[in-house]
Design a protein around this nucleic acid. Structure first.
Lengths: 257, 257
DNA sequence: AGCTAATGTGTATCAGATACACAATAATTT
DNA sequence: AAATTATTGTGTATCTGATACACATTAGCT
């Protein structure tokens, strides 16, 4: 949807290519500056911020649709994505919220218009490496911004609820989901990994016990290289051993949190 | 849908009252004879067995719809129900699978018929007390039957996948969901509670340690009464202290499994 | 060269989980 | 009525994993 023409076509005829009554919204998490962040977009036509989302093609599987939607908006492939909940409050999208469509079209919409009917949204959460995301603007989107999950702007529809539930889900799954693997870059230091878990759990952890536990899982490799990061001893870089990580996960790994 | 007339009306005009493209299916779990069971129905018009399910009224919240659907079929109210996953494979319901509609209507269906279009199903699982379920037959349903989850018949559409995912979810949530509370009757013995957990976890547990752990949670009350159950010592009845249970759950209770 | 702030590492202790045994008892059999 | 059988009620010793905790090391700064 890079031009007004494409957007108009989407609004007018999207119901033929896309499945009506259902959509997908994605809570994209990243980790930066010791904060858990979420990627939100600001539409040209709405006051509030929104999760990136979209519709499902008529013959497209759900997970594929979620990947495609995020790929179109961030350029990322093979994103770690998990369905977490579907949202279907009959008033989750009010007619008022959809007024922007009139602005774009400049003509009234039929009351049975495919975008005005009740829509159930399937929530996905994504864990991405902060620095790899290069948001792609389209005709609908004014800008993207990462927001600290503790300090969010006003959100459209029920997207605040979605963020809350996505966060709950990620926190509950912290024990057996590869959170560190997906949120951190290839190389990272032990203090960085610890900060991530401290942020997620919202509590401080003992440095020595944390390291013992992580190394005890047998999924980390210490590199020769150290990160030069200030007037003090330099921490080693670590990386996940992909193979051992996969094995541990399928064997029922628990991080112990 | 107690008469052919109602069923025909549902097929022909249901799209006006119900939201198309979305449905709900419920995996109803019960516990009996030391087996985890699931409630399936056999339609008059299909060879395979199916999960009880239905459509969502145009302005009905999802959880309300799930309760209503189960209430219509089991007579139960206030069922413990949790959404666990949405299923949206584009081929999850093939055209062949819907042939039965022609049989009922005795006329061909329009290719854009609301029941023939792709439908995404929202999966719920329910935990119910086995003996309280009195399945209600309607014009569509030939009979209901409880099935051991380890020994299921052939299922329609993607319902086998739904059962598998529902089971996975219940097992993962065993630690912080009131499984015993919902699957067992008001009064139960410690051996019965233990059997339930052993069945869920698929492994034997030490009798003494199990009892210590359960009583240690502070949510059980021992009654004076004992269950007379054979040529040996009679076990005490226990029941959950509803208030303490709620408190413990919201305080982040973990059963330790 | 000395200072500062963070990292690398090991041990002692505690709590919770596990392993384990014997006395009590309800119904049945003798 | 006594003995038998199968199951329940209960307590302790041990082990494992989690937690608490301290000192030596070092990169960059002054």
């Amino acid at each position: 949807m890079n031009t007004e023409k494409e957007l108009l076509d989407y609004i007018r005829n999207g119901g033929e290519r896309f499945l009506p009554h259902v959509s997908i919204d994605c809570a994209v998490f990243g980790f930066h500056d010791n904060e858990l962040k979420i990627l939100l977009l600001k539409s040209k036509f709405l006051e509030d911020w929104a999760l990136p989302g979209g519709h499902i093609l008529r013959s497209e599987p759900l997970d594929v649709a979620a990947q495609r939607i995020l790929n179109e908006r961030t350029g990322l492939n093979d994103i770690f994505l998990k369905q977490f909940q579907s949202f279907g409050d009959p008033n989750r999208v009010s007619a008022d919220n959809m007024n922007y469509l009139k602005e774009v079209l400049k003509v009234p919409l039929a009351t049975d218009h495919w975008l005005l009917d009740r829509t159930i949204s399937i929530g996905y959460y994504a864990l991405v490496e902060f620095s790899r995301v290069n948001p792609i603007l389209d005709y609908f989107t004014a800008r993207y911004q990462w927001w600290d999950v503790h300090d969010l702007p006003s959100l459209v529809f029920d997207h605040a609820l979605m963020v809350e539930k996505a966060l709950q889900t990620v926190r509950l799954q912290l024990n057996y989901q590869p959170v560190g693997y997906n949120l951190l870059p290839e190389k990272f230091t032990m203090p960085e990994l610890q900060k991530l878990y401290e942020t997620m759990l919202e509590k401080p952890l003992d440095r020595r016990n944390f390291q013992k536990r992580m190394l005890g899982l047998g999924i980390l490799e210490r590199l020769e290289e150290r990160k030069k990061v200030g007037p003090h001893k330099s921490p080693y870089y670590y990386r996940f051993n992909r193979k051992k990580y996969q094995e541990a996960l399928s064997a029922g790994l628990s991080f112990g949190f």
